[in-house]
Nucleic acid binder design. Sequence first.
DNA 1: CGGTCCATTGATACCTGTCAATCGCCGTGG
DNA 2: CCACGGCGATTGACAGGTATCAATGGACCG
Lengths: 252, 252
Amino acid sequence: MIRELPELVLPGATLDTLKASCASCSMHQLCLPMGLDNNDMDRLDQIIGRRRKVPRGAPLFRIGDSFQSLYAIRLGHFKTYQVNREGVEQITGFQMAGELLGMDAISADQHHCTGVALEDSEVCEIPFGSLQQLLADMPTLLRHFHRMMSQEITREQSVMLLLGNMQATQRFAAFLVNLSSRYEARGYSPHVFQLRMSREEIGNYLGLTIESISRLLSKFKKEGLLRVSNREIELLEPIRLKAITAGTQTCA
Amino acid sequence: MIRELPELVLPGATLDTLKASCASCSMHQLCLPMGLDNNDMDRLDQIIGRRRKVPRGAPLFRIGDSFQSLYAIRLGHFKTYQVNREGVEQITGFQMAGELLGMDAISADQHHCTGVALEDSEVCEIPFGSLQQLLADMPTLLRHFHRMMSQEITREQSVMLLLGNMQATQRFAAFLVNLSSRYEARGYSPHVFQLRMSREEIGNYLGLTIESISRLLSKFKKEGLLRVSNREIELLEPIRLKAITAGTQTCA
DNA sequence: CGGTCCATTGATACCTGTCAATCGCCGTGG
DNA sequence: CCACGGCGATTGACAGGTATCAATGGACCG
């Protein structure tokens, strides 16, 4: 089922092979779990648009941009944020390789949030018009696409739960556990990873201040729950961390 | 474009006419704004399942239920909530006639939240299997369906913004303004309406306590922003209310 | 080596939660 | 018809969790 593909683009590759490898890499991650067969994959490859590099800090799309494409992250990390009428940002999510960006823009044909790369990243552009045509005669892909949109709804609901009735300690533990499980699902270590976002961005996402995040990190460190050095983090007691997330343990 | 349909089911109606009127009423509201033509509407009617009454307080679906259908609210109001591992509810949304329920269940074939009627209500069941078949060869409807899912994502993002960086006063003003505009969009008065949910449910949704909601109502009343008697509410200064939502006015 | 930005830590203030008492509406039953 | 009881809502006093403000520390970069 898994097709062998060059992880790095070879020198001398044509535009077509570039496109193909682009599509496959990110779409593999997106689609394989859902059981697309090779035939479907090939057809999918054909509609995938160009690969695009996004340097750290650069926007992939901005609030108000007209909606043309979805973006599959091939490499790197992104954040999406809204801006309220005071001009204050609210981060609505952090996305990593293998995840899809831009689904909130379908409803009104324009983006409702801004997507910015947290590090030098790479995405595949998926023109939505072409995708829709394809969806119409590929039931498997259609189903898969609906699952992905639904998953986004579910994800946001759990953030609402987090923001609505968790204390700071619980929120931060939940944040770490969430990152951990996403890295694990992608084959990375669930216990040692880099925080790709600043303390300020974490705080913004969790509805807390940068100082609170800092204090929570110190507290967790003191408790022996984790080790942290700048953005490098190691979870020493994932079980206890999960317990705190669940609210069954207060963390001293 | 708007087809004339009996608002109330006539005595002596056959099962088929019942189904048809059911489908039309709720789906009209769902689909007309998106520009479905009559032909599409007729085909849509055919897959709509039975109409179902849901008495006040009764669940339409529960967390963990296997996913079979989406539900279009024909009449009444619902709330959806998640439950964290401590067993604490977090309301994720209030839905009214013309809105669609259950889209979060597509991702894992089971419901991630519980939907409960806030008053005696009525829904149309839309079997998802049938809907998918239909979507495959009705591009207009497919597009419309994607818009609705995307709209749900957008809605939840704005709740995240509300929970993540608004103060209590701002949250509550935003809540009222949101209800107001939704009633207006449905042809009801945007200034006078019934709160279908208890203070406790509002507080839960906004991440506040029932006491805070009570105090905010009193404060708004004192400011001359609204009049309230039990669940009947009248917005006296919608403009100022919107200003508070935007954060441009502090409300004394 | 110095500047800048981000992170950490401490002191204090404020918002909202918690606890408690009272009120008022409403349905029930005498 | 009225008394009673129950539940939701209101209001007040107080406490606690985070935000805010301020100072310091440390990493990265020119």
